[in-house]
Amino acid sequence: MDKTEMEKLKDAAFRIRCSTIREIASFGSGHIGGSMSIVELLSYLYYREMNVDHSNPGKEDRDRLVVSKGHSGPAVYATLASKGFFPEEWLSTLNQGGTRLPSHCDMTKTPGIDFTGGSLGQGFSAAVGIALGQRIRKMSAHTFTIIGDGEAQEGQIWEAAEAAGAWKLDNLFAFLDLNGQQLDGYTKDIIPSVHMPDRWSSFGWDVHVIDGHDFEQIEAAIEDAKRIPGLPHMIVMHTKKSFGYIPGEGIKANHSMTITKEQAEEAIKALAEREGR
């Protein structure tokens, strides 16, 4: 990736973060932590990787993304809006009655959402089904999916992992947002996410471990994975929950936070300063 391309992605991530913070602040509270931890990945997928068309979100042979950790909706919506899937003004309707942007990703409401999330574990099975469907329909498209480390406590994740391994779905690219936190606190204090890379390898997956906030590592992992046939791909991303919403960084209670409009603008200013913008 050349320097211009890298700057483009960094700009996109910054804009998506600002939109996500303002979006949540427009409602007054929301799932900031798990939204902010996947912003680099969303930026990379939508700005560099995925074959999608904002003017035709239902295009059959498109690449698809299932955000199985559906509570990251605010960041996904900010990304989709920035790519023109719907007007940016929609972002200020988050969670309001009648909105098309509900707390958790909903394929029946939002243009560009490829599957419904919200009941954790379910989107992952659907992603396996979508990848299988692409194979049955002889499409060369890819399926991308994002799961959380807390979400990986759901048994369904491992049922689906086994099936994808058995069916050798090499068009499936999964990302684990390993931020070490869940709603009630740190995963290490609840059900620790131990041996994640080994677990996925033992389920028959091609595994990569990266810093999920580093675009070059995201790119390298995806490109390396594409060269490995016959295995589904798991990219374990070490991330920081609430990364980029500085008031939420490094604290325990950052799953869902109250954010006023004033706090949002202060946080955006602080982020701009940190990034030298």
Binding site: F115, I130, L132
Partner: peptide, 12 residues
């Protein structure tokens, strides 16, 4: 998982 995979297949 079977039901979830089926849902994904339906979306395809």
């Amino acid at each position: 998982n079977m039901a979830g995979v089926a849902a994904g297949l339906s979306s395809m």
